[in-house]
Amino acid sequence: MQTIFQIRAIAVNVWRESIRNKSLQILTGSALVFLCFSLVLGEMAVGGRERIVQNAAFWMFGSWGLFATIYLGANIIQREYQRRTVYLILYRPVTRPVFLTGKLLGIVMVLMCIFCSLFLFTVLIFKVAPVQITAMHIMALLFIFGEWILLAAMSLFFAAFTSPILQALFMVGIYFTSHWSKDLYIFASNSQDILLKNTLNIIYYILPNLEALNFRGDALYSRVVPHQLLLEGALVLICWTAVFFTAANLIFSARRGV
């Protein structure tokens, strides 16, 4: 029971600390400005305005999630070390897994706030565009939020042993490579060079397949997605989040000191 109270105390204060942070407020504000700008882009583009607005909204959700998780991961873990605020938590009867769980839940709470405000604004923009919001839109957005949680776990993992700059580089690199992992697999299948083939296959298997969580195209073209694909996506999401979070815990617990 004490563990639950400790996790709650850490998570609530991560949330309080982050929502009062001006940088994060500016990041969220800029996403709202970008969403408004998508309406102007829609006017200028040759294609349908609705499609441009939807594309821009999905792109913004994907990218801003990456920015927010990089920022929160660096800010919440690395700055704990830099500011040494971690001392005053870890000298108490708080285990390192409890500390990291509290941090992850806190980040998820912050991400949920950002996501909800962006979602509400997106609904407003879609109304203006006008775009009919379908169940597939909701599904695609839920999977984007799932991707944010996976990125948050990945961010904690890198924050447990690297510097903020390296963490950002790894995150961006893995994010894009993971979205292209299917292409890597196809390229590996077509390649004649054994070394290249094996290397690409290894990269494909050791990186999370973020494309499995991408249903944006289906929402855009109102395609029905088979339940099996959604289930596979959910499985990828849960497994990779668990892998990154467990790895972050193992590394953080193995650190000799703080």
Partner: peptide, 19 residues
């Protein structure tokens, strides 16, 4: 080493709960 955006009361209460 304190969290700059937390209120004094919130910070101390968190420390108490963690203990």
């Amino acid at each position: 080493y304190a969290y700059p955006h937390l209120r004094l009361k919130e910070w101390l209460q968190m420390m108490a709960e963690l203990s």
